[in-house]
């Protein structure tokens, strides 16, 4: 065992990178769930974003356009879910699961010509001056721009939900859609927008995997990240601030267990791997289930 071979600065820096895809996907899902929509299709939207982003980036040579394409691709897929659940009133759980399966298949089909192709590189953003601060600099200020964009989106969502009128309406729709409807707010339109935002964020998270973290296209490459994002939303009890904590906890455990193994520490990795899930269950028990948005997962119809 040689713990000195683990560099804590590099560990914390790679933690931020490992957490970014799930953070992006989770913040989108959080907005959808606060509007009362339970979309279990995060995995499918992520993988679709991953392949669309990759295709756009390879063909245009620009990772930025790739991310934009990924957001559009994820949002487009989520609107399929939106139309089915909001206008055709299908069951959200079943439709979400179907969306995941559909996304996995669609992405495999779209990506067939792109296996083994290399993505254009996406350089790290060395923040001038700040990146030279000892210790903090390498941990916080030497990442690619998407790491910061993810955190800005979280901040934006927090401001939107807690400090804006539109955010209040969105929360009202999520808490009690009948009351919001009676007040004259359009439940469907609010929810469609929230669903599209969720899809766009999931697409960005997927593209982060295919363009930055891996970076290449392989079928099924999200490998369950979408499900972790869903768990983090519950862990965060639907609050953006805690979401960051949750994403760093999940991301941190992944990186830490690999580091400990490479350093030769003999803790069974199974224990470390299950800690975030145990923490989620513990949080659920402590918080009690009453805190979830009141109309989460319920079907809304104006005539009922």
């Amino acid at each position: 065992m040689d713990l000195s071979s683990i560099n804590p600065i590099l560990l914390l820096a790679s933690l931020m990178v490992a957490a970014t895809p799930i953070l992006l996907a989770a913040i989108g899902e959080l907005v959808a769930e606060r509007a009362g929509v339970l979309n279990l299709g995060v995995e499918g939207m992520m993988i679709t974003g991953a392949v669309v982003g990759f295709i756009v980036a390879v063909n245009t040579g620009s990772p930025w356009l790739g991310f934009a394409g990924a957001a559009v691709g994820g949002a487009a897929l989520s609107l399929v879910f939106g139309v089915l659940t909001q206008y055709l009133l299908s069951n959200q759980v079943a439709t979400g699961l179907a969306l995941t399966l559909f996304g996995l298949g669609l992405s495999a089909l779209l990506g067939q010509g792109y296996i083994g192709v290399k993505a254009p590189s996406f350089p790290d953003l060395d923040v001038p001056l700040l990146s030279d601060i000892p210790v903090i600099g390498p941990i916080v200020f030497r990442h690619d721009p998407m790491v910061y964009l993810g955190l800005f989106i979280v901040l934006g969502v927090w401001l939107f939900l807690n400090r804006s009128r539109a955010g209040l309406i969105l929360r009202a729709v999520g808490e009690n859609h009948d009351a919001a409807h009676a007040l004259g707010y359009s439940v469907r339109r609010t929810r469609m927008l929230a669903i599209a935002f969720g899809g766009a964020c999931a697409g960005l998270g997927g593209a982060y995997l295919s363009l930055v973290r891996v970076p290449q296209w392989t079928e099924g490459m999200t490998a369950g990240a979408g499900w972790i994002a869903l768990a983090i939303v519950v862990f965060a009890s639907w609050r953006p601030g805690r979401l960051v904590l949750g994403a760093y906890l999940f991301g941190g455990v992944t990186v830490l267990q690999l580091n400990l193994q490479a350093a030769g520490v003999a803790i069974p990795v199974e224990y470390l791997s299950m800690t975030p899930y145990l923490a989620t269950i513990a949080v659920l028990v402590i918080m009690s289930a009453g805190r979830s948005p009141g109309s989460l997962g319920k079907i809304f119809h104006a005539a009922r």
């Binding site: 071979s5 683990i6 560099n7 590099l10 790679s14 490992a18 895809p21 995997l209 973290r213 891996v214 290449q216 392989t218 099924g220 490459m221 999200t222 490998a223 990240a225 992944t254 990186v255 690999l258 580091n259 193994q261 490479a262 350093a263 030769g264 990795v269 791997s273």
Partner: peptide
């Protein structure tokens, strides 16, 4: 030899992470 077990046959993100950790550790 530094050995890391990924507990998967196929998970690109996890494999990339494992490779990065090994490179970081020399």
């Amino acid at each position: 030899f530094k050995i890391v077990w990924a507990y998967t046959w196929f998970d690109p993100a996890q494999e990339a992470e494992a490779a990065n950790v090994l490179i970081e550790q020399g």
